[in-house]
Design a protein around this nucleic acid. Structure first.
Lengths: 219, 219
DNA sequence: TCAAAAGTGTTCGTGCTACACCCATGC
DNA sequence: GCATGGGTGTAGCACGAACACTTTTGA
């Protein structure tokens, strides 16, 4: 059990950025070009600056890659197997972020070339231990949905109960009963009914709701 | 937002080791002798070796300081504020561990000089950001108690339902109803009734129970 | 008029809560 | 015999689950 006096490591953050789109839970991935991972995809992330907190670094990488700020961002776990990165000893502190579906215009802009959304059901090959990280992130998200209101971070400012329900169904991977869902959500006291109605759809217009408070509430 | 190409940091682990004793939740702390923290106490921990995973390092420090192996040990979070350690850039990956009350004989042995248990209700001054880490650990423990069976890791192999209930009360910080608690625990199917009875106490002997399975079950 | 999603109540079972008294032992 | 913790049942309530039809719009 002999140790060198000090072992230094590079500190990185990787961020699993989730959104819902087309009835699926999607995560942002970046195509890699460098050996030994050409053709693989990776979670956005990068190094932590020398005078920067890890949280700040995660927020910075989130903004650089997804162009969003001020969204839900929470630490998942640190990943530090000695051989997780062929480059050398890199400890990654993983985060997950939730962005509403109307915030990601990134697919069209040039800055985000090589960046795209993938359904978590159909993932490409992932570099490093990112498959492992992503599985942990999805599990955490699914678990937290049950007893918190983090779901709000995946919805637009105004949303219909139908949209909200389908978002829950996407993440949980199961169908929910419409009447029970509406009863529970309206009864939770976290939503405000607006005066606006959804428009321009070939069906009865749905009422739009907003969340009451900015801050997170754990139900 | 200019970054040096690589920023290196020292990787450490800190472990909040909990047990229950004398009706209180206790945590293991080490008295410090070196400036600028002489007179302060710190969570046991230390550096991660160059070829060692962070999990392994946490287990090693747990064994070195508390003399126990194979107990519950789970990562809490990484703490990486740039100024959290006056020594330099040290990123700490914090863990929490649960040890049964009959496993800690350490107070008497010489090897563990300067190491002692403190009630989480009456903490001494803590070095670094260890107050912050410890608060996070207690909150996690309290939260997990509600929906998992991690409590088993704080009990001896055979235990009475009274001991179990008082352990829950210690951690949750509230009184529980005896009949409801017993009903719920027996009904959970996680316990096995043994043929042994508690002995040598000035009251009616209590039946001893064990846990059914080795592996963790989330109820 | 048709397709599509919105909207709406009731019943049943389960699980949580509150609550008080007798029992077995050591001293 | 007394102090101490062990051991037991029931009633009320809240909550979740199951379940089907009418309404409103655009095409």
């Amino acid at each position: 059990m002999v140790l060198q006096k000090y072992t230094f490591a590079v500190i990185a953050t990787d961020v699993a950025i989730f959104t819902t789109q087309d009835g699926e839970l999607k995560v942002l991935l970046i195509g890699m070009k460098k050996s030994p991972y050409e053709g693989f995809f990776a979670l956005p992330g990068g190094l932590v600056g020398g005078d920067e907190s890890i949280d700040d670094a995660a927020g910075r990488h989130l903004f650089d890659k997804a162009g969003v700020r001020g969204v839900f961002l929470e630490q998942l776990s640190a990943f530090g197997e000695p051989d997780r990165d062929p480059f050398g000893r890199v400890v990654s502190v993983a985060y997950y972020a939730l962005v509403p579906p109307d915030a990601h215009r990134l697919k069209t802009t040039k800055q985000y070339k090589g960046v795209s959304w993938f359904s978590v059901q159909r993932l490409p090959n992932l570099a490093y231990d990112h498959k492992h990280i992503l599985e942990a992130a999805v599990a955490r998200l699914r678990g937290k949905l049950a007893y918190s209101n983090i779901a709000r971070n995946l919805l637009s400012r105004e949303f219909t109960l139908g949209e909200m329900q389908s978002m829950y169904e996407i993440i949980l991977g199961e169908k929910l009963d419409k009447r029970n869902f509406r009863k529970k959500m309206i009864g939770s006291g976290l939503l405000t009914e607006t005066k606006h109605m959804q428009k321009g759809r070939a069906n009865r217009p749905a009422r739009l709701y907003t969340f009451k408070k900015k801050k997170m509430v754990f139900i």
